[in-house]
Computed example of a mutant assay.
Amino acid sequence: MRARLAFQAACTYIGTVVGAGFASGQEVYQFFGRYHAAGFLGIAACTLLLGWMGARLMALGHRLQASSFRAVTAAAFGAHGSRWTDGLMMGMLFGVMVAMVAGAGELLREQLAWPYALGAIFTMVAALATVTAGISGVLGSNAVIVPCMAGFVLVAGVHAVRSGLPGAVAAWNWRFEDAVWALGSAVLYAAFNVGLSMGVLIPLGAALEKDEIRFGAWGGACGLGVMLAVILATLYAYAPAAMQYQVPMGFVAAQLGGWIQAAFLAVLWAEVYSTLVGDLYAWLSPFPTASRARRAVVAGTILAAAFGMSLFGFARVVQFGYPLFGWISLVLLFGLFAAHRRMQRTRT
């Protein structure tokens, strides 16, 4: 096993999943924070599912030596079925763009007192300029953003523990029904994130050996599980005040003060920006030879539609949209796994 490549695969898995919704704390709260102490049970289950689903998806890419998720869906579902799959994937990517635009507007409104529209438009213009100019290097920015994000999350968690904030006590309520809902939420959360990561995980698996796939998937899943648990514990410590904000981790950053607050907010915004740029590139992929002007028109139209939808509010988009995407991803993933198993039996 090439240890360095396996470690890079684990980091890539983490970087693919850790987007702005994750970093903001809103996504963690909606999927796990509402279930009090049972939220940690949900995170433990989610970690196992992220490892298993991620390993299966990368192994699928390895077996088929697929350069993109479209090659896998075409092999599994045929030309007609893959068109439906691609359409669903693009729809989910658009939904995430709506969340990113809303998240940017709320982050800059809550922390810098900017008008919501100004913060959202500022972020959209930055993303539009990037994809129009074709500067794809920004897509590798997670190599810097993710370690910074992990560091800030750990700093916030340590600060909360050392401060003995009273909100943590109130969060340790245990109810059986919370545990049931938290486990269901774990399934949707894992499926949602792995489903939207197909475009990265499938070609990544094609470049790895079997041992590297196992280490990359399970190492990445464990890293994600630790970050989820620390963010949840931090939100509980700052409850209920943090839960009143659209971007709860922005409120936490404000409590840290000084340069830590400024740097944390910069990283949060960078997560929004990089996620928005990545999704825009995916939407523009059918137009690889289009002129810069045409790409600008298409990207501008998509962003304008996303801005209109973002007026529903960041928390509402995450609360209702992300679970829906989880159900769609769950169906797609298990359909993909089942179809590949049938293909293997046919060959034998």
Rank of each mutant, 00 (worst) to 15 (best):
Ala133Ser: 13
Arg175Lys: 12
Ala168Gly: 00
Glu177Arg: 10
Val125Ser: 08
Tyr116Trp: 15
Ser136Leu: 05
Gly184Tyr: 07
Pro115His: 05
Leu128Thr: 10
Gly164Pro: 00
Ile135Val: 15
Trp181His: 10
Leu165Gln: 01
Thr123Tyr: 03
Phe152Arg: 06
Asn173Ala: 14
Ala186Leu: 07
Ala117Ser: 09
Glu177Asn: 12
Leu118Ala: 13
Arg175Tyr: 05
Trp172Asn: 08
Thr132Ala: 12
Gly167Phe: 00
Trp174Gly: 02
Trp172Met: 15
Gly151Tyr: 01
Met124Phe: 03
Ala127Tyr: 00
Val180Leu: 15
Gly164Glu: 00
Tyr116Ala: 09
Ile135Ala: 10
Ala113Gly: 03
Leu139Tyr: 04
Ala117Cys: 04
Leu118His: 09
Thr123Pro: 00
Val144Asn: 04
Ala170Cys: 01
Gly119Thr: 04
Ala156Val: 09
Tyr116Val: 13
Val161Ala: 14
Ala160Pro: 05
Pro147Tyr: 07
Val131Tyr: 00
Ala113Met: 11
Gly151Phe: 03
Ala133Pro: 01
Ile145Asn: 11
Val131Glu: 04
Arg175His: 13
Asn173Leu: 13
Leu118Trp: 11
His159Glu: 13
Gly119His: 07
Gly157Ile: 01
Val155Ser: 04
Pro147Ile: 05
Gly164Lys: 03
Val155Lys: 00
His159Asp: 13
Ala150Gln: 03
Val169Ser: 09
Val180Lys: 14
Gly151Asp: 07
Ala182Ile: 11
Ala113Glu: 15
Ala113Ile: 09
Ala171Asn: 02
Phe122Arg: 00
Asp178Pro: 06
Ala126Ser: 10
Trp181Gln: 15
Ala129Arg: 09
Phe152Ser: 11
Leu165Thr: 01
Gly134Asp: 12
Asp178Leu: 07
Leu165Ser: 02
Ala150Tyr: 05
Asn173His: 12
Glu177Tyr: 06
Met149Thr: 14
Ser163His: 02
Ala156Ile: 08
Asn142Ser: 12
Ile145Cys: 01
Ala113Asp: 11
Gly137Ser: 08
His159Phe: 10
Phe176Arg: 13
Ala156Gln: 05
Gly184Trp: 06
Pro147Gly: 08
Thr123Ala: 14
Met149Ala: 09
Ala117Lys: 08
Val153Ile: 15
Ala179Tyr: 00
Ala182Asp: 05
Leu118Arg: 05
Gly164Cys: 03
Ala168Leu: 04
Ala170Glu: 13
Met124Ile: 09
Gly164Phe: 01
Gly137Ala: 12
Ile135Trp: 15
Ala182Val: 06
Ala150Pro: 04
Thr123His: 06
Thr132Asn: 04
Phe152Met: 15
Gly164Ala: 03
Arg162Met: 14
Ala171Leu: 05
Val125Met: 11
Ala117Met: 12
Val169Tyr: 05
Trp114Met: 12
Ala117Gly: 05
Gly151Glu: 08
Ala133Trp: 14
Val155Leu: 15
Ala156Pro: 08
Cys148Ala: 15
Ala150Ser: 10
Ala143Cys: 03
Ala156Cys: 14
Ile121Gly: 01
Ala156Thr: 07
Ala160Glu: 01
